[in-house]
């Protein structure tokens, strides 16, 4: 276990960040990734078929 703890950060993100400038917008790459992932997740949730709803039945 101690070995696992010492690995606490395999890819530490402590170096100075990168930033995206676009007009007035000034975003860190990390935040940009989070926001893009959020939008992609939302879109995926809308479009991907939800499993296990084929055996629908009258129950009430």
């Amino acid at each position: 276990m101690a070995y696992l703890w010492s690995l606490a950060a395999l890819i530490p993100l402590d170096n100075y960040g990168h930033y995206i400038h676009w007009g007035v917008i000034d975003l860190s790459v990390a935040n940009f990734i989070v926001i893009v992932l959020m939008i992609l997740t939302f879109i995926a949730a809308l479009f991907l078929p939800f499993p296990g709803r084929n055996r629908r039945k009258e129950s009430q």
Partner: peptide
Amino acid sequence: DTQPAYVSSWIYVF
């Protein structure tokens, strides 16, 4: 133990 049949989308898991 049941939900209306329209509750069938990934959007419900958030």
